[in-house]
Computed example of a mutant assay.
Amino acid sequence: MIDKNSPIPVYYQLKEDVKSKISQGVWAVGQCIDSERELVETYGVSRMTIRQALGELVQEGLLVREKGKGTFVCEPKVKQKNMMSFSEIIARSGMKLKTKVLEFEIMEDIEELKDVFNSEKIYRINRMRVVNGENIANEVVYIPCEYLEVKDKSVLEGSLYKILEGKGYTIVNSETSIQSVIMNEEYSKLFEVEKSVPLLKTYSKNMTEQDKVIFIEEAVYRSDKYVLEVNISSRGEGKLK
């Protein structure tokens, strides 16, 4: 299982083998994996190597350590790294996605959106994203009617990105603010949970290559099920906002 003569670091080989066992169901979600001592005997490597491999898997959210109990397999999370529709993220992860359209209406002369959109009529679309049977994300989208002609709201159960691309609008950039929010009674009902779970709220302006804002999205995610990875670079004129 481990080739010590390979140019690939031993800890990385071990890490990949543990990931493979998890994906194959050798260790199921919620199950405690072998102890460090057992892994040392199985793989014939040092305890330091074991700890490095497991430490990275903990950072990646595949494992969780519980003091005095052991290391357990985590439930897989929805992970977003770059500009990609939620539908595409779920499709790539192999999970099952269902989208519920909670509200759909046309709003007129919205004062707070006039600085963003030069449009008199704007769609407000409220959708719940259900992944593997659980409510994971609530998205409220504001988009001018001229960008998205909707004759049947069932079309909104799919990817808005793909609908917009079909009309010649490709989203390549997003200005997003992120904050944590506290679970309250409203969110508890919305996500259909009785226990308190961590939530992540985002507000984003989604734009074309010409910096034309196509839609605004206000979203709330269960951050115990969703991970948003942000890459920050100091190259060029990039700024932190």
Rank of each mutant, 00 (worst) to 15 (best):
R37I: 02
R37V: 08
E38Q: 14
V40C: 10
V40A: 05
E41D: 11
E41K: 11
E41W: 02
E41L: 14
T42N: 08
T42A: 14
T42W: 02
T42K: 15
G44M: 08
G44V: 03
G44K: 13
V45W: 06
V45H: 13
V45A: 12
S46N: 10
S46K: 12
R47Y: 00
M48Q: 11
M48A: 14
M48Y: 04
T49Y: 01
T49P: 11
T49L: 01
T49K: 09
I50F: 05
I50G: 08
R51P: 00
R51G: 01
Q52N: 09
Q52K: 13
A53C: 04
A53Y: 05
A53N: 08
L54D: 01
G55Y: 03
E56F: 04
E56D: 07
L57P: 07
L57G: 03
L57H: 04
V58N: 08
V58Q: 07
V58R: 07
V58M: 13
V58H: 05
V58Y: 03
Q59A: 14
Q59L: 11
Q59H: 01
Q59P: 00
E60G: 01
G61E: 07
L62F: 12
L62G: 09
L63Y: 02
L63D: 03
L63M: 07
L63G: 08
V64E: 14
V64K: 15
R65I: 12
E66A: 06
E66F: 05
K67W: 01
K67H: 06
G68Y: 03
G68P: 00
G70D: 06
G70H: 07
G70Q: 09
T71M: 05
F72H: 03
V73S: 09
V73H: 07
V73E: 01
V73A: 04
C74R: 12
C74V: 04
E75D: 14
E75Q: 14
E75P: 03
P76W: 03
P76H: 06
V78F: 07
V78L: 12
Q80L: 12
Q80E: 04
K81A: 06
K81S: 07
K81T: 06
K81V: 02
N82F: 00
N82K: 10
M84R: 12
M84D: 05
M84K: 13
S85Y: 02
S85I: 00
F86I: 05
S87G: 10
E88L: 11
E88N: 10
I89W: 02
I89P: 07
I89N: 09
A91Q: 15
A91K: 15
A91E: 12
R92F: 01
R92P: 00
R92I: 00
R92G: 05
S93G: 09
S93T: 02
S93M: 12
G94W: 05
M95D: 11
K96G: 02
L97K: 09
K98G: 08
T99Q: 02
T99M: 06
K100L: 10
K100A: 13
K100P: 00
V101A: 10
L102V: 08
E103R: 15
F104M: 09
E105Q: 13
E105D: 13
I106F: 03
I106S: 12
I106E: 05
I106D: 01
M107Q: 15
M107Y: 04
M107W: 04
E108N: 14
E108Y: 13
E108Q: 14
D109F: 10
I110N: 11
I110V: 15
E111K: 15
L113I: 00
L113C: 09
K114R: 14
K114Y: 01
D115R: 12
V116Q: 12
F117S: 07
N118I: 02
